[in-house]
Nucleic acid binder design. Structure first.
Lengths: 347, 347
DNA sequence: ATGAAAGCGCTAACAC
DNA sequence: GTGTTAGCGCTTTCAT
């Protein structure tokens, strides 16, 4: 690893001259000859500015941490890509971390930040994190931006339009002619699940309001909602529960694609044919949706853009700006009709 | 961010005293009183050693990079966990990077290493990387360890026992009574695919050798092999190809679980019932295997241990030891029988 | 037992 | 135009 000193020696100039040239200081006055001598020497030695030296000088690492609950969740693939691209564009490197290692109470994050390893944190909080645990790491001037999550009293979240997603998925089923529709949702504690439930109810209410006279109790019009979580096994449990009812649904909105995969599996076990006897539409798209049977109808969310906007927000915060919560709705949620949804069977 | 100087000032001692105490220098002679004064001051100020300062001093970052072709591939989940755990144990932090960003020709890796951001690299090379591209970054004293891959002339790989995996999967189908067995494999260029093919042929040869008289041309005994790749769509293409044959197989070994998911999907499209008309066993286990229909029989590989051993090897290399190639076979590949395999139909 | 000082690689203010 | 110098936070001789 060649240093500035090495380059300076080879070029026969001072260290500061080299520094000026190689960091392309605009206001640097250097003769053309020395400039070429320096750049050539640097190239010959394959010079790269030492990371630690810079970080020490600037007290800034140009690294941001991205923390997601589960790295292998295909849903986060796009998010990560967006973050990486946004970061690269701004000269940042992304340190990807497992939320697992971040327990308990953000000790690991404190370390990352406290030791100056990273300048800021992009945090997608997992479903099972208690708000209290979050509170400790969101205190004070902590350069953190929440992605896809919110926290009471914390300003600096960037989220998706989950209401629209819930509405879109539900409208699709209504359009097909379904009337008994259920929502297989995430945990009640999560903001995303709450939002998706709102969209679900909105669509149902609008339909019943338009189609029939507005009932006195709109609540009775709304379909059943389960709140088991976003994992495949949560989807399985939810479906069993719903199918036990006296009048089981003919269609379900599943708030997460992974849970939907569980729903599909459980439907097979229960002998329920999809889409003939049960239509399934899931929120979030991923490669897995094309490889289930039947292929899953999904609502594609702008996760890539979410990642980029998250970096934008963190960048702004790192530069002293106070940032407001933002909802990423461009491009808007998009319905991808595959083969898991169909009109209900007449009988 | 409190510095050593801050702690020293608060404790009323010199900076060097603080350094000695806080880095628990065993050979440091310090009075009990100053020691407690220092530790208390450090605690009061929530002191954390500055990363850049240390890295600069030691010319060592205590960070290793883990590069995998696709972060969201469930197969790598275990690998990552093993790496993280192994690294943490040794006081290292893991910088997770997309192979995507590493193109072309390892420019990004050169940067990571050249700027001193990481001390070494754990590299799982993707299927589509040309050996020439790899050669440039594996030259000289590059502190790199290949995981799950090999490179001609490069010593420092840690791999799995893919021969045993191929053999185990094939033996399972043989035991069920299948005689027309095919291998849906990865690209010919990948070491893992080659090894799995060896195991596949070994099992077939052993069976034909034991069951009948050893034929003069053992090659004729071996089942057909396709080499399309490890992705779902590669699996689909492979199945279509195999089923076009005059005597299609009654069972397939799929060299990768993701390809196997594609195989299952394509079987549905072709109207082939699994396992009645076609048994499917895949190498590598993941949560997805439990959620396909039917649930996939798989061969579980010790990927967690692979990760840990990879860190071991890199650590050794970073400390000047020359390391040999190693094969991680403890625990050995394990067959997980689910519902995608069954005896062939008699006719 | 404790402190002073040098130096890791870099940048920027300040000479000349 | 170019060089000298101080200092970012840390560890480690070397004095005392």
């Amino acid at each position: 690893m060649a240093t500035l000193g090495d380059v300076a020696a080879l070029a026969g100039v001072s260290i500061s001259a080299v520094s000026r040239v190689l960091s392309n200081d605009a206001s640097a006055r250097v003769s053309a000859t020395t400039r070429t001598r320096i750049t050539e020497a640097a190239k010959a030695l394959n010079y790269r500015p030492n990371f630690a030296g810079r970080a020490l000088k600037f007290s800034r690492s140009n690294v941001i941490a991205l923390i997601v609950p589960d790295l292998t969740n295909a849903v986060f693939a796009e998010l990560m890509r967006g973050v990486e691209d946004g970061a690269l564009e701004r000269g940042y490197v992304v340190l990807l971390a497992r939320a697992e290692d971040m327990q308990p109470g953000g000790e690991m994050i404190d370390r990352l930040l406290g030791e100056g390893r990273v300048d800021g944190v992009l945090l997608q909080v997992g479903d099972h994190v208690a708000p209290e645990a979050l509170a400790s790491m969101l205190r004070a001037a902590n350069p953190t931006v929440l992605v896809n999550s919110v926290h009471p009293g914390f300003s600096g979240s960037v989220t998706l339009d989950d209401i629209a997603a819930g509405r879109l998925a539900t409208e699709h089923l209504l359009t097909l002619g379904h009337t008994r529709i259920a929502l297989i949702n995430g945990l009640t504690t999560t903001h995303t699940a709450q939002q998706r439930a709102i969209g679900f109810r909105e669509a149902l209410a609008a339909a019943s309001g338009a189609g029939t006279a507005p009932g006195p109790d709109a609540a009775a019009d709304s379909g059943p909602i389960t709140w088991h979580g976003y994992e495949p096994r949560a989807g399985r449990a939810a479906l069993r529960e719903l199918m036990d009812a006296a009048e089981p649904p003919t269609a379900v909105v599943v708030a997460n694609i992974n849970a939907a995969i569980g729903v599909l599996g459980e439907a097979r076990v229960l002998g329920i044919r999809v889409p003939e006897e049960l239509s399934v539409v899931a929120i979030h798209d991923a490669w897995t949706a094309e490889n289930t049977w039947p292929p899953l109808t999904t609502v594609r969310m702008p996760l890539y853009e979410l990642g980029r906007r998250g970096v934008d927000a963190l960048y702004a915060r790192l530069h002293g700006e106070t940032i407001a919560d933002t909802v990423v709705s461009d491009p808007p949620p998009e319905l991808l009709v595959r083969e898991s949804t169909a009109p209900p069977i007449r009988r």
